[in-house]
Structures are given as C-alpha cells and as structure tokens.
Design a protein around this nucleic acid. Structure first.
Length: 507
RNA sequence: GGUCUGGUGGCCGAGUGGCUAGGCUCAGCUCUGCAAAAGCUGCUACAGCGGUUCGAAUCCGCUCCAGACCUCCA
C-alpha cells in the first residue's frame, strides 16, 4: 500500500473473462462483465440481529464469501456491502405491526440497542469461526434513517408513494403501469391480487399489494424516529435499497441473498430503486442462495428444526449424533452447489468429515515433499489448474472444484509415498493450487495447527515417541511398538507408517 | 390455487445430447510385523410414461412425488 505507487495498471487474471454467473433475473448463466472493471460492487442482505444466527444464515453468507473470495482472487477490487438489519420488520406471530427488535427488548427488559449489539457480536463471532470474511462495509439500518427518509421523499415525488395517517406506502399498481413489477420472482400482479390477508394498515393502503415505506409508530414501539410524516420507523424493504445505492451507486454489479428473500423483499427493492431513481435496473446480476434443509424440510426458526452453530459444533442437539468442526461444516456446504438445496444429516456430515480429513492430510504432506529431478513423466498440473478455474468460472461450482482438488490429493499421496517422482516445479504448482483454491478461495485451513508454541512442542514430543517406536520396531519388539501406538490412539493421535518414516495426525 | 426449484448408484452430491464427476460406505488386492494410512480394482445410477434424435440423466409433453415462495425469515 505505497501511496507513491502509480495508480493501477490493474491486471485481472486471464481467467476473469470466463466467469459466468447464474443470474436469477434472467434465469440464465451469463458472462460476468462488471460495469466498471476492475471495480465490482456487491450487496448482500445481511442478518436481522434479534436472535442468534442459525445455519441457514451461515450457508448464505458462506456462499457469498466464496463469491467475494473468488472475485478478489481474479484481481477485482470488490466493495462488498452486507447490512445489519437492526430495526423494524413485523413479528411473525402477531399482526400488530410491532417492531421485532422492540418486542424482544421489552421481553427481556433491556434496551433495543443492547439486543442489537448482543446479536451482532454473536453474528460476528460465528462468521469468524466459519472463516467468512468481513465485508468492506457493514452498514446498519438505524444508521441510515436520514437517507431512508430521503428516498421515501423521492418516491413520493415521482408519484409512486402516498401518505396515509402518517404512514407511507408504495403504490404498486401505479408503478406497474410503467414497470414490470414481479420480473425477478416471476409473479404477475393480477395473480398476486387474489392473495390478500389481514395485515396491519391494510385499510390505509390503496391496494393490498402496496407495501410500507414508512410506518407510524404507536406508543408500544421502542424504536422510532421523526420524519415528515410521523414519528415512526422505516418499512421492511427500504434499508437495502438505500444502503446499496449509497455505497454502490444506482446501478451496481451483484446483489445476493437467500432464496426466500426473492419475493417480496428483492422485488420491492427493485421497485423502490426504480421508483426513486429512474428506469435503469439497479442490479446487473442477482444471485440467490438456496435453502438449508434438515430431513428434507427447510431449516427455520419457526419449524424448530434448526440448531445454532454452537450446537452443531458441540453436538449438543437432539438431531445431532456428535459435534462437527466448523471446517467440516464449511467443507460440507461447499460440497453442494449454492443454488441447490442442501440437506443436513449425520451421515452426510460424517462423510464430509472424513473426506476433509483426507484432503487436509494430503495438503499437510505437501509441505514436506522432496523433489525428484528429471526423468519421470509428470502429471499435467497446468490442466489441473485449468480445471479448477473452469469449475469456479461455471457459476462458482465448488463441488467440482473440490473434485479437482481430490485429483491433486492422489498425486500428492503418490509422490509422498515414493510411487511417483516430482520435480520442484511440480511441487510448487501443487502448493500454489492448494494455496489459491483450498485456502484463498474455499477458505479452508488446517484447524488447530496455527503453529503456536504448544503445537510446536507437541510435534517435538511426537518425534521422540516415533523415534522410540521405530527403535522398538527395529528390534522387533512389537509389544512396545504397539503399546506406543495404541496409547497414542487412545489420546487421539493417529500413527501412520509410510514408506519412508512415520507421520501422525491429531484428532 | 398461483409462481418456482428439484427427483441421479447403499448415502451425500456434480453433470444439460454421445466421452470417469467427486466424497463417504462396502468388497477384493498391493504395501505393511500386525493395524492404520496410502494406492489400485470392483459395485455403473439417473422418478414414471410418451415424444424428438443416429444417440438423452441431459431437449419436449404428460403423470407421480418432494420442497420453497406467495406472511417476518438467508
């Protein structure tokens, strides 16, 4: 970051041009062409911080973490905005228009912002555990009330919003005269018409399809702000329109979120943006991550079939046979494509655990491989790398990328066991492959091996034990050799005898 | 009812017209003092019924089944 460096000649990876993204708006895979390369703007709908994050959230944010990581790897300068929703949204169980966070606060008799802070902290902790990178900007809804009021005013000015009793609603019918409301989710306005339901403020609306931009607060509301229309709070969909526009512009490259936000949330976002700023599509590529299911059912708070990340890690939940490490979970999720549903089950998780172990141990071996120069035919590592890029370029196909890595695992194991010789260039290529794709892009890492002092010491001790055991083996003292091996195994250390020496892994 | 997604081998999960996905499990073999690890080999599937095609898991139609969304939800 030397400021004297001349700006730029920013070089994109030659693979950047090959990236194709499954665009929910067109329902097709499209070549990725940013508005203003090498800059890329990406907005992802973040969590509502009124309770702990659950695994479904994690999956969505993991999906976009990999998107973010890959774009960075390709050389893009990405501004990644992921909001924190800390106001407003109706409660599910009542129709009184109550503020979710306000309700929770009253229940627990604490300040709303205390609730927000607590669960924001929890959210950040969980993201860190799963190696999900922080976004470039993490704006909050409460921090953008002024901008939200401004956007409402513009929408009213443009004739797409109206005030009623201190609340402001978006006029969907009016908007639909000149715009294609429903284009993202494939809905037609006339069909939506039939499905009305009882909701607060319904009588204030000109049409049941209209949605709130601003809601007047009643006395029970703890979170409210002054506005030209009333003391109240912003509507459910507004913050994302406002914050994406503020930080990424009226038109930007990528907007992501969970499938369940497609309608009405994202549809309304589009309507608000176009209603406020004019005819251009606000988003070029919409990406929707699919749901996480448990026993074939969507994991959700109301179903009661969700477990928290902590429960998953500790195994302390009735649906879990045991705990699974964060990297196992991350790897498991990456073994499915983001656009499909992914079903959580114990056997599937355990398979991922073992698979990851094999991947990791080969990756670890990579550091110790000794090059053999000359002669032997080398596997085509360039082709391997090409396949890795091809996988990611095909709509971030991480399962296929992982399959490529397993091909590399076979090569590594063959070299490590002396069945195959490899020159230094080949070994470097393999190391680069894992560094780039397993570490940087998939965000995988060796978990407990941070190279801290205690690990170093444990390694030293292990070397002593292995030396003793090999001594015993040389003397054909099998009893002693097996004693060492079994005792270590009982303490979670696995001994692996190879052609040239003994290695070990910790549980 | 409407919109949409999906039904792939023992399990998970890629694959959109012809060529091995991959992981896990299981069986056999190699290696090994034994075991583990590793390697090799095998188990070769595409909901059903029609249609298009020289050829379909892949395209079209219908049927069945599952799930999501249509109400806050990643």
């Amino acid at each position: 970051m030397d400021s004297s460096t001349p700006p730029a000649e920013h070089t994109l990876s030659p693979y950047a041009g090959g990236l194709h993204i499954g665009n929910s708006l067109s329902r097709q895979k499209e070549q990725f062409t940013p508005f203003n390369a090498p800059y890329v703007g990406m907005y992802v709908c973040g969590p509502t911080v009124y309770s702990n994050v659950h695994l479904g959230n994690v999956r969505t944010f993991l999906t976009f973490d990999v998107v973010y990581r890959y774009l960075l790897h390709l050389g893009y300068k990405v501004r990644y905005v992921r909001n924190i929703t800390d106001v407003g949204h109706l409660t599910g169980d009542t129709d009184d228009g109550e503020d979710k966070i306000g309700k929770k606060a009253r229940l627990e008799n604490i300040e709303p912002m205390e609730v927000v802070q607590r669960y924001t902290n929890d959210f950040h902790d969980v993201m860190r555990v799963f190696h999900i990178l922080p976004p470039s900007i993490e704006p909050t809804a409460t921090g953008h009330i002024v901008e939200q009021i401004g956007m409402i005013a513009r929408i009213i000015e443009n004739g797409f919003g109206y005030e009623a009793n201190g609340s402001v609603y978006f006029d969907v019918r009016k908007y639909a005269e000149s715009h294609n409301y429903g284009e993202l989710s494939g809905r037609r306005i006339d069909e939506l018409q039939n499905q009305t339901r009882a909701l607060d403020g319904q009588d204030e609306k000109r049409d049941p399809l209209d949605f709130a931009l601003w809601k007047k607060a009643d006395s029970s509301h703890l979170m409210h702000w002054p506005s030209p229309w009333s003391e109240g709070f912003p509507g459910w969909h507004l913050e994302c329109s406002v914050m994406s526009t503020k930080y990424l512009g009226k038109s930007f490259d990528i907007h992501g979120g969970g499938m369940d936000l497609k309608f009405p949330h994202h549809e309304c976002e589009i309507a608000q943006n176009m209603g406020a700023h004019g005819p251009e599509q606000p988003v070029r590529y919409w990406i929707h991550g699919n749901m996480l299911t448990v026993n074939g059912r969507k994991m959700s708070k109301s179903e009661g079939n969700g477990f928290t990340p902590e429960e998953l890690i500790t195994g302390n939940h009735k649906l879990l046979e045991k705990g699974y490490s964060p990297m196992t979970v991350r790897f498991f999720m990456l073994q499915g494509h983001y656009a499909g549903t992914l079903d959580f089950s114990n056997p599937a998780l355990q398979a991922a655990e073992k698979g990851l172990e094999r991947l990791m141990s080969a990756w670890g071996l990579l550091e110790e491989l000794a090059p053999v120069e000359g002669g032997e035919p080398q596997p085509d590592l360039v082709a391997l790398r090409d396949r890795a890029y091809a996988a990611m370029n095909d709509d971030f196909n991480t399962p296929v990328l992982i399959a490529v890595l397993y091909d590399a695992v076979k090569v590594i194991n063959s070299v490590a066991s002396g069945r195959m010789g490899m020159d230094a260039a080949g070994i470097d290529a393999l190391r680069a492959l894992f560094q780039d794709f397993a570490h940087d892009i998939l965000g995988l890492d060796h978990e407990a091996s941070d190279g801290d002092a205690s690990t170093d010491r444990a390694d030293g001790l292990m070397e002593v034990l292995c030396a003793l055991r090999n001594e015993a083996k040389t003397n054909k003292d099998w009893a002693t050799a097996d004693l060492i091996r079994d005792q270590l195994a009982a303490r979670g250390v696995q001994i692996k005898d190879g052609k040239d020496g003994t290695s070990w892994t910790f549980d």
